[in-house]
Simulated assay, not measured.
Amino acid sequence: MSRLHHFSLLIVTLALSFQLFCDGKVMMEYIGATGAPVEFDDVPVDANIDFHFILGFTIDADSSGAPQNGNGVFSPYWAATLTPDAVAATKSRHPNVKALASLSGWSLAGKTLSWYNPPDANIWISNAYSSLKSLILTYHLDGIDVDYEKFPANSNSSFAYCIGELITLLKNQSLISVATIAPFYNTVSPYVELYESYVEVIDYVNYQFYTDKVKSPEAYLEAFRNRTEQFDRGKVLPSYEVNGRGIQGDAFFEALRLVEDDGFDVNGAMIFSADASASNGYYYEIKTQEFLLSNSTS
């Protein structure tokens, strides 16, 4: 057997072993959105979890938050500590880690960001593809997360077409392996349109349940049921905002148990964000991973 053939078999074996080892559990963690000097190494990562760091944010606007004439050129605005070398190092230490870039977010430089219909959708897609390709290769990224949070009042938005075609192109060119979307209660409509048209290239729905402002586990379960009627139940991840809105404290884990008892497979979760968790020793990251690994689903 040649050394090359032996090495190829080793890589395949390791990949299959890792897939079985992680047992289908996924953890999404936003990081770097506030500008605080957070480090990947600060966040506890369980080796049995398929752990996705979502870098917030890359934005198709200039540094003042003004749209760049609809040209789709993305630039990174996450914390300066989250360098390409830092991404490569944490992925080297943790083979179960992936890194994603989140598109847009809520604001930049105090200015609310909005999806704007580009004059030419295909030019926007081409420019977005080129700029994100450069970002993906530079930062050793595995995917993108779509987090536009404000849309034009008219219903003729090109959002679904532009984003759907962009994800499809990135996947077809093997530049990314993961694509997620992050709707909340006020943006469900454009995301449902995107999801229904491009469901085959969207892997997870990081629905922002904390924006639903539910305070009890029972209300959280009801919100979860409602959202899984709009998006596939197997792709919707329960979510939590540290020191933020919605359900707080250990009531979140009681809500997860209710969701599981109601017949849902709780095989993943999303937390916003690592920046806020530094103040409490990453309690929710640790406990969420423990829950995912101890629950009865597989």
Rank of each mutant, 00 (worst) to 15 (best):
K213M: 11
I286T: 15
I176L: 06
P183N: 06
A66N: 14
V199R: 09
F264R: 09
N154F: 07
S107D: 15
F40D: 05
R245A: 14
T58F: 08
S189N: 07
F224H: 05
P152N: 02
C22Y: 09
P67D: 15
F272V: 02
R245K: 14
N117P: 01
D41W: 08
A88D: 12
V45A: 03
I247A: 01
L20I: 10
V214S: 04
A61F: 09
E39I: 01
Y198M: 07
A269G: 07
L82Y: 06
I202W: 00
F252T: 04
A89V: 00
A182D: 12
V236K: 01
A101Y: 08
I59C: 13
L55D: 04
L292Y: 09
F51P: 05
A128S: 13
E241G: 04
K287C: 01
Y220R: 11
C22P: 07
F184W: 11
A36M: 11
A109D: 14
L100M: 09
R3E: 06
V87K: 05
S114H: 12
E241I: 12
F57C: 05
Y148L: 05
L221G: 07
A86E: 08
P238S: 00
S239C: 06
G268W: 10
I31Y: 02
V199Y: 12
G35M: 11
A153F: 05
V26D: 03
N280Q: 10
T13E: 06
K215V: 10
T211H: 09
M27R: 02
N96C: 06
D142T: 00
A86S: 10
I163M: 15
L132H: 03
T138S: 08
F224N: 02
Y30I: 04
V201I: 10
D120R: 07
L82Q: 11
V266D: 04
I176E: 01
T81S: 15
F53R: 11
D265H: 14
F18S: 15
S157G: 13
D41E: 15
S158P: 01
D62G: 04
D62M: 08
